[in-house]
Design a protein around this nucleic acid. Structure first.
Lengths: 221, 221
DNA sequence: CATAAACGGGGACCTGGTCCCCGGTTATTT
DNA sequence: AAATAACCGGGGACCAGGTCCCCGTTTATG
């Protein structure tokens, strides 16, 4: 056995997974993300496998616990959304335009899926998750604060308000996989953003919602 | 058998249901409405019965088919929302304030529940339903047109936009029966309404959504 | 007070999701 | 290019949970 493979990994016994195995794993996560958004994270394993175009055994082999799959999906989704936020902040000069771009971009990534994730068993305190969440929060918080300092965003709203409304508005109606619905969603997001713009047109009850508020409330049930 | 009872109904054999029977039926519909909102219309029959404080047999006796129950719940909900719309139009002098009042009132009635109803088997063309829907549409359409004519509501939005966004924003997060969430919902509805107010702050893609659009799209899946 | 309608809980049936086994297929190695 | 081992996929057994009915008891009516 000449060691041509085991250069960076631990000695031997980790000969690198096969190419199609990784491809399948990726297809599964993608399919799961779509299914979770549409039917919730309790959707049958076999359905996910079918959507991914793989046998159910492959799915069970890759993710023996449902928790693992949810974890992977949430992580990948948060990474993508964070990416959107960072690019928006970087490439958009107008602070409110940056906020718009983030919002619409996040909608395209189906952030609405993050909410239903919080239902069942799901390791909320996993290190990976905390790290990724920190990145996301920092990015969005940055967008919000920048726009507020520039006087473009009303100051009686918080990151939590934006994120929750965004999630709610982008959640698909259960029955419809209807594509034309996307058009509606964009309209409503833009309307909501118009309401977010300074100066404020009305007085809001309660307090600006931070992300801490969200975490606390969503566990209270 | 002296016919003291069968005055308005068909001859005999319809001696009027017992008092507690009607009371139970009402409690069931109320419980079902709450459960549907929170868990979708596929929620187990036994759970509904438990929430209603009746035995499951009573539930099965009153609504042998799930369709019947959904039908009843939708009908009762639409009636209540229509009521809200009509009172808002009648008692509020400012046209936009009427719109606000309707929106918040409808949220209290949990219109969000109407959406998940459209998933499974559910007789969409029942006469009762068509009639009630006509009343509702007329009432809301009236509110919208009045506000638009008064120049208080932007003209690039339609009844469909309002109803869909309203439904979306009031849908509860699956996991949380969290009461504090209501506070958020009101904030977001008010923000959305601010975005709806004339003059328009941005240009929207697509066309103002009528209720016809909604019906067409939600069946396409 | 008599009576019949309505109630409620417990248990049998059955649908539908989970999870494993094993024969066939496909990427890697010399 | 052939050998080999990892990976794949479908079918079926197991099992949890929802549905639905039966029957002894309660309660409104006249």
């Amino acid at each position: 056995m000449t060691s041509t493979v085991a250069d960076s990994a631990s000695a031997r016994r980790v000969p690198r997974p096969r190419a199609d195995a990784l491809r399948n794993r990726e297809r599964i996560v993608t399919a799961a993300r779509e299914m979770f958004v549409e039917f919730g994270s309790q959707v049958p394993y076999d359905e996910i496998a079918r959507r991914a175009g793989v046998g159910n055994a492959t799915l069970y082999r890759n993710f023996p616990e449902r928790t693992d799959l949810v974890h992977e999906v949430v992580l990948s989704l948060m990474a993508r959304v964070t990416e959107v936020a960072e690019r928006a902040a970087e490439e958009e000069s107008d602070t409110f335009a940056a906020l718009r771009r983030f919002t619409l971009g996040a909608a395209d990534e189906r952030v609405g899926a993050l909410c239903p994730m919080l239902d069942g068993a799901f390791d909320k305190d996993h290190p990976d998750l905390i790290a990724e969440r920190a990145r996301l929060e920092e990015a969005v918080q940055g967008l919000v604060e920048r726009a507020q300092r520039a006087g473009r965003l009303r100051t009686d709203v918080g990151v939590g308000d934006l994120m929750v409304a965004l999630s709610q508005l982008t959640r698909p109606l259960p029955g419809s996989g209807c594509a034309a619905f996307d058009q509606f969603v964009r309209r409503h997001l833009l309307l909501f953003l118009d309401g977010l713009e300074a100066p404020a047109r009305s007085e809001l009850p309660g307090k600006a919602a931070t992300l801490e508020d969200l975490r606390r409330d969503s566990c209270s049930s």
